[in-house]
Amino acid sequence: MLSLFISAFITLFVVIDPPGCAPIYASLTRGVSAQHRRAMALRAVLIAAVILLIFALWGRNLLHVLGIELHSFRIAGGIMLFMIALEMVFERRTQRREDRAQKIIDTPEVEDVSVFPMAMPMIAGPGTITTVMLLMGQADGIQQRAMVLGAIAANLMLMIIALLSASAIMAVLGQKIEAVITRLLGVLLAALAVQFVIDGLKGNFG
């Protein structure tokens, strides 16, 4: 059970990337009062939690309704996560997030960033939703599913901490250290993505 929790936690941590979202949130909320910043951070994580919970509990039923086998979804999800990993290794993911944040900043009428872009797609984006569904699909029994849900909750708690202390994280990490960490996590995510694909291929053709 502990190994499952650790594996799920690390996988979700790499995909959700709380330290990477912190500087983006800091730039999006520059000039906003501390109270409003805290409220938006809590709202963003709460909305993301609801989205992820829905897909964690009923995502498999949705696949069944659409006639999609779980093994096929593992292959597709693994490929998708591998693409995210490549973007992390070559720093394309960070650049895309920064470009999205800049567009929001350049639009004066946008004041509340909790729903977009923070909750969706930065926290509960396609990669995170795919990962949650894959992990829940691999979980066998109530206890294992509870471990996966616990890993989701733990990562969302880290996200709240990261958003609330975004300015401090930027000061401590700096851009160079953050880039190194992102690339290392990208390599780890690539290996996990390949394992998802292998499991899916074994399920379909094994």
Rank of each mutant, 00 (worst) to 15 (best):
M1S: 15
F5A: 05
F5G: 06
A8E: 02
A8Y: 03
A8R: 02
T11P: 15
V14W: 00
P19Y: 00
A22I: 01
A22V: 01
P23L: 00
A26R: 05
T29D: 01
T29K: 00
G31D: 00
A34C: 07
Q35H: 10
H36R: 13
H36S: 15
A39N: 12
L42K: 02
R43D: 07
R43S: 10
I47V: 15
A49L: 00
V50E: 01
L53Y: 04
A56K: 03
L57V: 04
W58D: 14
N61D: 12
H64C: 09
V65P: 06
V65Q: 04
H71F: 00
S72V: 04
F73A: 05
I75Y: 05
A76C: 12
I84P: 07
L86N: 12
E87K: 08
M88A: 14
V89G: 09
F90N: 11
R92L: 06
R93L: 11
Q95H: 09
R97D: 10
D99V: 12
R100D: 13
A101S: 14
D106R: 08
T107F: 09
E109I: 10
D112N: 09
V115A: 15
F116Q: 11
P117D: 02
A119D: 02
A119C: 08
P121V: 02
M122P: 12
A124G: 13
G127D: 01
G127A: 05
L134M: 12
L134C: 13
M136N: 10
G141Y: 00
Q143D: 13
Q144Y: 07
L149P: 07
G150I: 03
A154Q: 04
L158I: 09
I160P: 03
A162T: 03
S165G: 15
S165V: 08
I169D: 05
M170Q: 09
A171D: 02
V172D: 11
V172S: 14
T182S: 13
L184A: 14
L185C: 14
L188N: 11
L188E: 08
L189S: 10
L192A: 14
L192H: 10
V194P: 09
Q195D: 15
Q195A: 15
F196A: 15
I198Q: 13
I198K: 13
I198P: 14
G206I: 03
G206M: 03
G206V: 06
